[in-house]
Design a protein around this nucleic acid. Structure first.
Lengths: 207, 207
DNA sequence: TCTTGTTTTAAACAAACATTTAAATTTTCG
DNA sequence: CGAAAATTTAAATGTTTGTTTAAAACAAGA
C-alpha cells in the first residue's frame, strides 16, 4: 500500500524534463539528457512515465495550460477595455519574462506535430465565449474604438510581446546585448506596445 | 577534367535539404530524410557536402541571407518614411507568404545554437549604417513623428508580420482554418498592421 | 577499345538512441 | 524483525543515427 509513491523522484523528473524540453525541444532532447538533469538513473524516466513521448505530452499539456490560462482569466475580468488590453500585455510580458522559452517552444512543437494541440476546441470556445469578445463588439458598435475583430486584436497583443522573446537569441547576438540589456530593451518595448495599441484603438478619445 | 561536376545532383540535394530542414529543423531531420526527399543514395549527401552539419550550415547561411537582404535593401531606398514602413511590412509579408516556415526555422536554430549566427556583426553594421536609421532620427528631431528608436520600430514591423506565421500552425488548429482562410486572415491582418504602425507614428499629421 | 577519373551504389560501421530486463536496494507495515 | 511491495540500479535490448568503405557504373578522351 504505501503513502506517497516517491513523489519526490517523479517531480524531480518532471522539473528536469520541463527545463530540458523547453530549452532543446522534443527532437533535441534525449532521455539521457533528462536523466542527467534530474540526477537519476536512465530507467526511471520510463518507470514513472512510460515513454519519452508520454513524459513530453505530460509536460507539454502543463505548459500549454500555463500559456493560456492567465490570458483567459483576464479576458473575463469585469474591467474596461483599455485597462484590459494593458493588463493582457502586462500579463503576457511577465509570463514571457519568467519563461523566456515558452513561446518558441509551444509554437515549434505545434508546428512540428499539430496533433499535440489536442484541446484546441476548448481554447476556441473559451475565447469565443469570453467577456472580451462581447466587450469589443459593443465598443465597436458604439463607435468608441476603431472597428476591429477580437482575433486581430489578440494577435496584435501576443505577437508584439511574444516575438520579442521568440527572437531573443537573435537580438542578443546581433546587438551584442547582455541579458540585462535585453531585459531593459524588452521592458521599454512593452510600454511602447501598450501605447501603440491603445493609441490606435482609442483614436477618437482625447486622452 | 569533365565539364560540369554533376550540378544536377548537388542542387537536388540542396533543394531537398532546404525543404526538409525548413520543415523539421536540424534536430528533427535525418540524413536519410534528405536522401529520400532528393531521391538519391544516402552516401551522396556526404559525398557532395562532407557532413549533415556542413550541408545544414550551407542551407542556413543561404536562408538567413534571404531573411535579411530584402529588408536591408528597402532600408536604404531613397523614399519617404511612411512609404518605407509600408514597403517593409509588405516585403516581410510576401517573404513569409512564400516561405511560411522561414521565421520559425531561423529563430529556432539561432535559439538552439547561437553560434550559427556567424555574421551577426555584419547584420548590425548594415542596419546601423542604413539610410533608415538616419531618416527616422531626423523625422523625430523635426517632430513630425512620435519619438521612437529604429530598433523598436523594426521589431514592431517584423514581430507583427512574422509572428503570424510563427504561430500559423496554432491558429489553424485553434480556429479550424483552412490554408485559404488563414491566408485571407493574414492578408487582412497585414493591412491592419500597416495602418496601426503608421497611424501611431504619424499621429501629428492630419491624413 | 582501353584507360582514367568521376559519380553512384549497396553494404557496413561504430556511436547514440529509447526502451526493457532482471537483479539489487529501499521502504512499508503486519 | 521479516516478508511483500515499491523503488533504483547496471546491464543489455534492438533500432536508428551519421558516416565510411569498397566496389560498381558511368563518362570521355586517346
Amino acid at each position: 500500500m504505501h503513502c506517497s509513491p516517491s513523489k519526490n523522484t517523479e517531480e524531480r523528473i518532471r522539473e528536469a524534463a520541463r527545463r530540458v524540453f523547453l530549452e532543446k525541444g522534443f527532437d533535441g532532447t534525449t532521455s539521457r539528457d533528462i536523466a542527467e538533469a534530474a540526477g537519476i538513473n536512465i530507467a526511471l524516466t520510463n518507470y514513472y512515465f512510460r515513454s519519452k513521448e508520454k513524459l513530453f505530452i505530460s509536460i507539454f499539456d502543463e505548459l500549454i495550460q500555463l500559456f493560456f490560462e492567465g490570458m483567459f482569466c483576464i479576458l473575463n475580468k469585469p474591467i474596461g477595455l483599455r485597462e484590459k488590453i494593458a493588463e493582457l500585455v502586462e500579463h503576457d510580458f511577465q509570463l514571457m519574462k519568467n519563461n523566456p522559452n515558452l513561446s518558441i517552444f509551444i509554437m515549434n512543437e505545434i508546428h512540428r506535430n499539430p496533433e499535440r494541440m489536442a484541446n484546441a476546441v476548448e481554447a476556441r470556445k473559451q475565447f469565443q465565449q469570453s467577456v472580451f469578445d462581447d466587450q469589443l463588439r459593443r465598443e465597436v458598435a458604439l463607435g468608441t474604438i476603431r472597428p476591429i475583430e477580437a482575433m486581430h486584436l489578440m494577435v496584435m497583443i501576443i505577437a508584439n510581446i511574444q516575438f520579442l522573446f521568440v527572437s531573443k537569441a537573435m537580438h542578443i547576438r546581433i546587438w551584442h546585448m547582455s541579458e540585462k540589456e535585453f531585459d531593459a530593451f524588452a521592458d521599454r518595448h512593452k510600454d511602447l506596445v501598450i501605447d501603440m495599441i491603445t493609441s490606435y484603438l482609442f483614436v477618437f478619445e482625447s486622452v
